[in-house]
Nucleic acid binder design. Structure first.
Lengths: 198, 198
DNA sequence: TTAGAAACTGAATGAGTACTCAGTCAAAAA
DNA sequence: TTTTTGACTGAGTACTCATTCAGTTTCTAA
């Protein structure tokens, strides 16, 4: 019978923090063990390898992120598609702030490197991205039905909007520019990309 | 007196290739030495450390990239600002294809990590990004003078356009989506973001 | 021709690393 | 109570890797 193991959760929590602060390679198992207050062996008792631990962090992020999106869509009503799109962008930016560390981790390159020869990792990334993009896509589809959005390739426009929003998040995390100040311009740009000119 | 050292160039060339293929941590000095056909010691004769070699790759990229932009602007005439912007986007996408490895390296996260406590690295990144963004900005300024582009905050719009274009490049390098197919939508979106509605 | 400097070598070093494993401990099952 | 089993430990192992350095080769200026 499985007994409860609070240390497993603690390890996952500290690993998330350290990986996103310092990256995969600059975080040693010994660092994580120290931060958690656990022996190194304990980490390997719960996770077969460092890479598996790293993937467990991604996996947990994925489930929490996707469920937060479902909750968002289930609990909100929108007047029209364009409003839904704007609300989705705002919600997305909120999430990136709330789950800041893990979005940073997502933007780091190492997951993409692992994904090259690890299908599981690739699927996690794909799931995350498609769930992000699909919110925008659903809004565009709705908007095209109610004519608040002009007829365009929904998939492609959703990708471009996603790219735009996610690019801002990246500029922010890298601290290259103050992305906050771009919020109004972002919304306005999306509107002119999509709005029916009636 | 300094003698010519073809091996230094060869090291830099192979390092660029290996770093962009496998990343910083998965590329050892011994790998680079083997690939170049040089003893490990030779690398440390020319570069004080692995990190310095990594930065030398960035430095070289920066100078070549910036000079290619200057050449582009010096040798082209544009009917109006909007045309200049479209041409700049096309040129930028061309460059990312021509310097594919190095753009991949730029998108990898490790430079940003080093930049956190290495001013030199931070300046390289800043120079690269501002030179990229300034092309778009110049086009927008020109377009506002000749009224092909509506009056907007040039800096912010340039950032958003950059974000959009660069996002596509990233989607491409990560092979998450076929970004080629988005080219037309990209241009069209930029146009509706900027075009005067006259 | 030769001294001296620059370019280059590669074995040795030592710091760090992921991971193993024999064994301890505590709680649940018998 | 005794036995079993899952959770946990941490010293030990095997290995990788950046960096060093004493020495060799190659070039050039005098």
């Amino acid at each position: 019978m499985q007994r409860s193991s609070p240390k497993k959760d603690a390890i996952l929590r500290e690993a998330t923090k350290l990986f996103s602060e310092n990256g995969y390679w600059d975080t040693s198992i010994s660092d994580i063990a120290h931060a958690t207050g656990v022996a190194e062996g304990t980490i390997f008792y719960h996770f077969h390898s460092k890479e598996e631990l790293f993937l467990a962090v991604l996996q947990k992020f994925k489930t929490e992120l996707i469920s937060s999106f479902h909750q968002f869509l289930d609990t909100h009503e929108f007047a029209d598609g364009l409003e839904m799109l704007e609300a989705s962008i705002t919600f997305y930016l909120q999430q990136t702030r709330k789950m800041e560390e893990r979005f940073l981790l997502l933007h780091r390159h190492h997951y993409y490197q692992i994904a090259e020869d690890n299908q599981k990792c690739w699927h996690h990334l794909e799931d995350i991205y498609s769930s992000l993009i699909s919110i925008f896509e659903q809004a565009i589809i709705k908007g095209q039905k109610d004519c608040s959005i002009k007829p365009v390739s929904t998939k492609n426009k959703a990708l471009l909007i996603f790219t735009l929003v996610d690019g801002l998040v990246r500029l922010n995390t890298y601290k290259l520019y103050r992305a906050d100040e771009l919020y109004n311009d972002l919304i306005e740009s999306c509107r002119s990309m999509l709005q029916s000119t009636t």
